[in-house]
Amino acid sequence: MAKEPEELLRGTLDALILKTLSWGPRHGYAVAGWIRETSNEALAVEDRALYLALHRLEDRGLVESEWGLSDNNRRAKFYQLTTRGRAELRAESNRLTRYADGLFRVLKATRWGGEPK
């Protein structure tokens, strides 16, 4: 009974990608797969949007790319974080977490003016 995958808010995709890459170099397909699995199918990323975001991150200098060999020896483009990318990830992560936390508090409030259980 999984709900329909939600559309992602703009700007959060970048943070997700950066987080995915924090575990090491990955190619685009792997990034897409990991995001879907880890979010328990709640977050759906259109492939095209993902690749666009990857390329733009590279343009901004937050990730860098290199061609390498995949698990089954196919040529694939691997992305990894740069120093600036790590810093950006920390900042964005904090911001989004605070945002989500605020959302959570408001939505889970049980009465007007009180703390949630």
């Binding site: 259109e46 492939d47 095209r48 949007a49 690749y51 666009l52 390329h55 733009r56 590279e58 343009d59």
Partner: peptide
């Protein structure tokens, strides 16, 4: 994937700019 044709153009444009 989405619109492959558009994607190719977009991605190439971003890379070229870079």
């Amino acid at each position: 994937f989405g619109d492959v044709y558009e994607a190719r153009l977009e991605l190439a444009a971003v890379d070229r700019r870079r």
